[in-house]
Simulated assay, not measured.
Amino acid sequence: MPPFRIVLILLCVAGIVLPMRYFLPWLSANDWDLMAMVDAWHVNDASSGLVWDLTVAALTLTVWSIWESIRTRRWIGLLAIPATYFVGVSLGLPLYLLLRRA
């Protein structure tokens, strides 16, 4: 297996484990209230800036993966879209790059 592929796989694992390490305990402690989590993300200007940064990155990845999937007729890259919105860009981007090279 090429080294770049191994790096992408490791980034996918990190992109799942690192965010979920914080999200799951927080959600569990707050009765799985997603709106409370959104409110917590906007507790100050710094965190709101990060939310918007990641939102633009997620939308960019979505547009890119749709555009390239239509252009190349390789639909496997579309799996990065739910990964991005259910976990985060930290999983969606390395997964997309991994699937793109598949």
Rank of each mutant, 00 (worst) to 15 (best):
Asp33Cys: 03
Asn44Arg: 13
Asn44Lys: 12
Ser47Asn: 14
Leu8Pro: 02
Leu78Phe: 07
Ile70Tyr: 10
Ala58Tyr: 00
Gly15Tyr: 03
Ile9Thr: 12
Pro2Ala: 14
Leu93Lys: 03
Leu34Val: 14
Ala29Asp: 08
Ala102Ile: 12
Ser48Ala: 15
Asn44Phe: 13
Leu97Met: 13
Glu68Phe: 11
Arg73Pro: 03
Asp31Tyr: 02
Gly15Lys: 04
Ile81Cys: 06
Val87Ala: 02
Val17Cys: 09
Phe23Ser: 07
Leu93Pro: 00
Pro3Gly: 08
Leu78Ala: 06
Asp39Cys: 06
Ala57Gln: 09
Glu68Trp: 13
Val17Asp: 03
Arg71Leu: 11
Val63Asn: 02
Leu98His: 00
Trp26Tyr: 12
Asp45Glu: 15
Phe86Asp: 02
Leu97Pro: 00
Ile76Trp: 12
Ala36Cys: 03
Val38Leu: 14
Arg21Ile: 06
Gly77Phe: 08
Leu95Tyr: 02
Val87Cys: 05
Ser48Trp: 10
Ala29Glu: 11
Tyr96Ala: 11
Asp53Val: 12
Leu59Arg: 03
Leu95Met: 09
Leu99His: 05
Val13Met: 12
Ala58Thr: 05
Arg101Ile: 06
Leu79Val: 11
Val89Ile: 15
Met1Ala: 15
Thr72Cys: 07
Leu61Pro: 00
Trp32Gln: 03
Ser28Met: 08
Pro94Phe: 07
His42Lys: 15
Thr55Pro: 00
Asp39Ile: 11
Ile9Trp: 08
Asp39Lys: 14
Leu93Cys: 04
Arg71Cys: 03
Met1Val: 14
Met35Glu: 10
Met37Pro: 00
Trp52Ile: 14
Gly49Phe: 15
Asp53His: 12
Leu27Gly: 04
Asn30Phe: 00
Tyr85Val: 09
Ser48Pro: 05
Phe23Lys: 11
Leu54Asn: 10
Trp26Asp: 01
Ile66Glu: 02
Phe23Trp: 10
Ser69His: 07
Gly77Thr: 10
Val89Gln: 03
Pro19Gly: 05
Ser69Val: 08
Asp33His: 08
Trp64Gly: 03
Ala83Glu: 06
Ala80Asn: 06
Val87Pro: 01
Phe4Asp: 12
Val63Met: 11
Asp39Leu: 13
Asn44Gln: 13
Leu95His: 02
Leu27Met: 15
Ser69Ile: 10
Phe4His: 14
Pro94His: 07
Val38Cys: 03
Arg100His: 09
His42Cys: 10
Arg101Phe: 04
Ala46Leu: 15
Thr84Glu: 02
Val7His: 04
Val87Ile: 15
Met1Leu: 14
Ala46His: 14
Trp75Asp: 01
Ser90Leu: 05
Leu93Asp: 02
Pro94Trp: 06
Arg71Lys: 15
Met1Pro: 08
Asp45Arg: 15
Thr62Ala: 11
Val56Asp: 04
Arg73Asn: 10
Trp41Glu: 09
Ile6Gln: 10
Leu50Val: 15
Ile76Asp: 09
Arg101Leu: 09
Ala57Val: 10
Trp64Met: 13
Pro2Cys: 07
Ile70Thr: 09
